[in-house]
């Protein structure tokens, strides 16, 4: 990446043009900037902003897909959800799901990064291999977990039985607490590589000589980490955390495959409940459920971005 490309020959032929470019520099820069935003903005406007605002509008109607006519009812759907006992469980589960898994993913990801940052044989293959959980399509890897948690076929249950630790099969997905734990483990498994690789990227920016200097000063590993490493990786840790919170909060597929929110709604989250509500064509309520996530996510985003910016 530090290879300086050769100056192309033709550049010198455009001296005159270059002069005008330089003269109208600031003006030109702003114009170019807006121009550069156009392709991405166009895609985001058509395929993101429009559906989003349309969804926002739908959430304030009592629209059912197959039933003609609908009324604008302001925040009635949102109010209706507030005294929906299932929805209250959904909010609780989503918070538990996010705030249990994200710290684990962070700590394990950090550990993974510290391990992979060392020099050892075949490290490249380990690095790619340990990315596997992130690469395999979730729809399929979750099925592998469904099997590991299966009431009949689970090899984990088999091992426990044969070690004489228990008689029956472990009730991974049928007990409310076990179900949440099982789902969290699958989520953590899937999420660790992203943290690991991101933090590893941050670690590579830590200058070795600083570490050595600190070591010579007699600082222990723990102090060296906080004094030398942490300031460098702090931003990427915060940003990764933010992304992970957003993904986990809005997660749908993993829980949908494993429990569909059961047993008795004990693992339902926003995404799965919204999808379930869509199943009965109740567009308005489904949209409101999804949109309830938005303020929470916005608050997380603002807090974390504030911390990231404060440093700059």
């Amino acid at each position: 990446m530090n290879a300086v490309p050769a100056q192309p020959e033709e550049l010198s032929q455009n001296q005159a043009q270059g002069y005008t470019v330089a003269r109208s520099f600031w003006q030109k820069e702003a114009v170019l900037a807006y121009l550069f935003m156009v392709p991405g903005a166009l895609i985001l406007l058509i395929f993101m902003a429009y559906p989003f605002f349309y969804g926002l509008y739908i959430s304030m109607t009592d629209r059912f897909v197959g039933i003609p006519g609908s009324h604008f009812i302001w925040f009635e759907n949102y109010r209706y959800l507030l005294d929906d006992p299932v929805f209250r469980k959904v909010v609780r589960n989503t918070f538990v799901y996010s705030f249990v898994t994200v710290p684990f993913k962070l700590v394990l990801g950090l550990g993974l990064a510290l391990v992979l940052n060392q020099q050892f044989r075949f490290s490249r293959f380990f690095r790619a291999g340990l990315l596997l959980p992130w690469i395999v399509p979730t729809a399929i890897s979750t099925l592998a977990f469904l099997m590991l948690y299966n009431g009949t076929l689970s090899p984990i249950s088999w091992a426990f039985r044969h070690l004489g630790l228990m008689n029956g099969n472990i009730n991974f997905l049928g007990d409310p607490v076990n179900a949440i734990i099982s789902i969290c483990v699958a989520n953590i498994w899937r999420g660790v590589p992203f943290f690991g690789i991101s933090i590893l990227a941050g670690l590579q920016a830590v200058p070795d000589d600083l570490h050595e200097a600190a070591a010579l000063d007699g600082a222990g590993a723990w102090r060296r980490f906080w004094a030398v490493t942490w300031p460098v990786i702090r931003n990427i840790v915060l940003i990764s955390t933010l992304f992970s919170i957003i993904w986990t909060f809005a997660d749908f597929q993993l829980i949908y495959v494993l429990t569909k929110g059961g047993p008795a709604n004990s693992t339902h989250v926003f995404g799965t409940y919204s999808y379930q509500t869509l199943g009965v064509t109740d567009l308005g309520t489904a949209a409101s459920i999804s949109l309830y996530m938005f303020p929470f996510l916005a608050v997380f985003a603002i807090i974390l971005l504030f911390y990231v910016r404060r440093e700059d």
């Binding site: 989003f52 957003i246 749908f252 926003f270 995404g271 489904a286 949209a287 996510l297």
Partner: peptide
């Protein structure tokens, strides 16, 4: 921050 479960119908 916009969840796909909201977006996919519109």
């Amino acid at each position: 921050l916009v969840p796909p479960t909201l977006l996919f119908i519109p």
